[in-house]
Structure formats: C-alpha cells, structure tokens
C-alpha cells in the first residue's frame, strides 16, 4: 500500500500534501492540547509498532504481498489524532530510511494510512463498542471489525489514486505517464486482495492485542484523545 515515487503524477502528489497539511496541523494541535504526559510513551510505541508490523509482508502465493498497518490499534489506544501523528512518523521514516513509499507520495500514503484508515477504524470501533464495558467481548469484536473495514477502505482509496493516474496523465496517444492501470483494475486488485487476506490480518492482530490489554491493563483502553 506504500505508493512509490513515479506512480502518482505531480498534481496528485501536491493535492495529497495539501490535504494532509491541515490534518497534520490539527493533529499536532490536538496532541499539544489533549495528550497526557503518560500517553507520550504510548504514542512512540504506537509509531514503532506500526513501523514493524508493516514489515510483515504476507505473501499471496505467486502474486503480490501486503501487510497490516497497526493504525486502528494505535487509534483505539491514543485516539485518532495522536494515531495520525504516530503512523505519519512511521511512514515518513520508512520512506526516508528504506525507500518504502516515495517521498513525493508521502502525502497520499499518509492520507490513506494515517488519516482514512486511522479515523475510519477509530469511529467504527467507537460506534460498535457503544457503551459496552471496557473489558467486554463486544469491544474485541468491534476492534476486529473496525480494523478489517478500515484497511479495506484505505486500500480502496489507494486503488482510486492509482487508477486515476492514466486518466489524469497520458500522452495524446493514450499512453500513461505514471501508474498505468485503469480505475477498475486498480480498485478491484487493491480491494480484492485486502478483503481476502490482508484486512483479516489487521483484524486479528488488532482484536488480539485489545483482548490482551483488557486483561493486562484495561486503563489503557479508555484514554484516547
């Protein structure tokens, strides 16, 4: 899901940087205003967790690989704004240190994984959890379903971004300058492989960690900003 350099046209890259800029500003302000000192290590651990879980590329035999992001779990623990910052830190470092995701595509990659995914996951979790007790099974299920939906929707957005490129940037003869796949192909590939494989991994990881924390340290599950 990490879009490399050269796959999105300059306008698309600029657009997503422009979209992310105010989101990053609000997220910084929220962290500044509402993050408790005790939550600071959790934000840092969230960034590190997101970083390392994204390295677990799961193979589709003979095909491509994909991965979970940990973003929904981080959002449940520290809230979506702080999670946006945490996942952004992971994505920027992946691009800078390891070339995983392009520098020009950081806006788009952060939009998909640090904004769409994190906020969708957080609010689906909150909606399904309702007023259920912190240690209820309903919250474990809510976390799993939220993670599944959030990664799938993030994959949909990534597919749309890929798929719009040949429409936006092509020669007069119709040859694509950047990512060459049609909208239909890109969206069905991205959404399909996530529905079948990768979103399940995100769901299982998220639900299991929430279940563990319910026993280990339930206070952590009630403190998001």
């Amino acid at each position: 899901m990490h879009i490399p350099d050269g796959y999105l046209g300059p306008g698309t890259c600029a657009f997503f940087y422009a979209v992310m800029l105010p989101i990053w500003l609000v997220a910084s302000r929220m962290v500044k205003k509402a993050l408790k000192i005790t939550q600071v290590p959790l934000l840092a651990i969230g960034a590190a967790f997101s970083f390392v879980i994204m390295m677990f590329n799961i193979p589709i035999p003979g095909g491509t690989t994909g991965h979970a992001t940990g973003g929904v779990l981080v959002a449940i623990l520290i809230g979506p704004w702080a999670a946006c910052i945490a996942v952004t830190v992971a994505l920027v470092l992946q691009a800078l240190l390891y070339g995983d995701g392009g520098l020009t595509a950081i806006g788009a990659n952060c939009f998909n994984m640090a904004f769409v995914l994190v906020f969708t996951g957080y609010y689906v979790y909150r909606f399904i959890s309702g007023n259920s007790p912190i240690n209820s099974r309903r919250r474990v299920a809510a976390a799993g379903i939220a993670a599944y939906l959030a990664l799938t929707i993030a994959a949909f957005f990534t597919g749309v971004e890929f798929g719009l490129q040949p429409l936006l940037y092509h020669t007069s003869g119709g040859t694509a300058f950047y990512a060459p796949y049609s909208l239909k192909v890109a969206v069905s590939a991205m959404v399909g492989e996530h529905i079948l494989v990768f979103s399940w991994v995100e769901a299982i990881v998220t639900a299991l960690v929430i279940k563990y924390l319910q026993k280990q340290d339930p206070a952590l599950l009630s403190g998001g900003i």
Binding site: H2, P4, D5, G6, G62, T64, T65, P180, E193
Partner: peptide
C-alpha cells in the same frame, strides 16, 4: 511462495530517483 512486492509497487522502474 514466490510473491512479489505490493500490488502496483514493483513494475515501474523509470522516473527520477529523488532520494
């Protein structure tokens, strides 16, 4: 399992290396 990179991530090699 002979699985390549993420979907759409491995095909293009053209383009300037910025970083």
């Amino acid at each position: 399992f002979k699985a390549g990179p993420g979907w759409g991530e491995g095909e293009l090699t053209k383009g300037p290396k910025l970083w």
